[in-house]
Design a protein around this nucleic acid. Structure first.
Lengths: 182, 182
DNA sequence: TCACGGCGAGACACGTTTGTCTCACCTAAG
DNA sequence: CTTAGGTGAGACAAACGTGTCTCGCCGTGA
């Protein structure tokens, strides 16, 4: 995004991946030309960094998941009680998630790296159950998966994410923990 | 699915649409050849029923949403109190939803028909708030949207939907209404 | 028996996409 | 100034997807 971003090498690859995420979000049929344009880059440059379209997609999966995991690591979930950890996880994923959500939705099997994120939500649910703060009548991995789908929902539903990360995260934290009942 | 399904005319179109939903679920780039194969049908037959790929997609949107709306109508949501209506809605959508969820995810703007389903969830949330059984600190349409994303989550997460419609619907009903807290 | 309608298979032309390659450009380092 | 590395632009062949058309097949109803 910044002006110096077009310096040789390292910055370009990342910019391409971010642009690809954005382009694929609008439609998965986006081709290399479309991605190149979105990245403000020549089409040939795509092939200098990625062997093929398929390869670019795989790398995008790795990149997005890694970014998401990094955010979750930084949130230090295991340093706080589960309810607070849920809130932190939601903020963390929503803040980096616009790039990420593509991964979780479009090709669930193509990107095993995505599991790294889901696993962390599962783990959180499991700890919650062990600590007695989360219900035990739903398996932890189901809780984790549905927690994930709330996050995706927040990212997908424009009017919600438009309120900003804090608001949106707060909404799904409340809903996930306490439910919709009055 | 049944053997007599290959009788002339009416059955084929529906089978194509179901196959298209299934094919597009794995990847939106699925072409006409792929859809035809999934439907167990010649590629030419696709063009006998739909003018173009674009047209097929539009019809798929209409078809899926209509099927979903039909199920919701049949559930008579407004004849019962909101918590029971939520349970019914979940069962209704999950039972027809495997075809439907593609619509909601892949091209939110391409298929305005999808709104017909979302609107019903919004309406349900609004009634819940008016009746005092649903929380008012989250706008009704946000509740509706997140309710929808829980449904999509249930459809997407294999281990959950594999338990069957009743189980899966029950899980998201509990989670949506009461939350994950113990 | 025959015609008919819907079908599968496959050939076809056309446009688009992919992946490769070359060339000229610009910038930073020497 | 000169070189080297990364780039944008564009030419290019091959592969792929689309939409049309024709053929031969098979079941239904006359």
């Amino acid at each position: 995004m910044s002006i110096t971003d077009s310096r040789p090498g390292d910055g370009v690859r990342e910019r391409i991946l971010r642009a690809a995420a954005s382009a694929l979000r609008s439609h998965e049929r986006a081709g290399m030309a479309e991605i190149a344009t979105a990245a403000g880059v020549g089409r040939a440059t795509l092939y200098r960094h990625f062997a093929s379209r398929e390869d670019l997609l795989v790398e995008l999966g790795r990149f997005s998941a890694a970014e998401c995991v990094r955010a979750l690591e930084a949130a230090r979930l295991d340093a706080v009680p589960v309810p607070e950890a849920v809130a932190r996880a939601n903020r963390a994923v929503l803040s980096v998630g616009r790039a990420y959500w593509v991964v979780s939705v479009h090709a669930p099997d193509l990107w095993p790296e995505e599991r790294a994120v889901g696993d962390r939500l599962d783990l959180l649910a499991r700890r919650g159950q062990e600590d007695g703060v989360l219900r035990r009548d739903i398996p932890a991995d189901h809780l984790g998966a549905l927690h994930g789908s709330l996050i995706v929902g927040a990212l997908t539903y424009e009017p919600l994410i438009a309120l900003g990360v804090e608001e949106a995260a707060d909404t799904i934290t409340k809903l996930y923990l306490s439910g919709a009942a009055a």
